[in-house]
Amino acid sequence: MSDGTVAIGIVSHSPDVARGAAEMVRQMVGTSVDVGWTGGNADGGLGTDAAQILSVIEQIWTPAGVVMLVDLGGAEMNTEAAIEMLPADRQATVRIANAPIVEGAVTSGTMASTGADLEAVVAAAEEFGG
């Protein structure tokens, strides 16, 4: 808990979905949690882009960690690729939650806002499916 507040990253094929999910966290949870998002490919179409995801992670990264919420297929693969591009000592502090992105973003954001650690924030996202 001494490392600060876990941040939340959102990756969707659609920039509108990613932006909307991030906005829900800001409005429902508050601004104490840093939320980053990205969506769409480099051409502006539906898709995800590992370089953009990496950029988001770098913007919101804190020693407390980052929980990533991702949507379908490529979003997860590109997020994994982005995490592998991080410095080795940061890779374990960025986790992909196995959760639906909107619900997971709000529930993990709520837990993050309480100062909970990375494991607890991931668990809060994944509890939604359980």
């Binding site: 429902m28 949870v29 709520t110 837990m111 806002s113 309480t114």
Partner: peptide
Amino acid sequence: ARPAVRLTQTAAK
């Protein structure tokens, strides 16, 4: 949803 978030945040203190 929103009240549930507020309640959780309060309880966690």
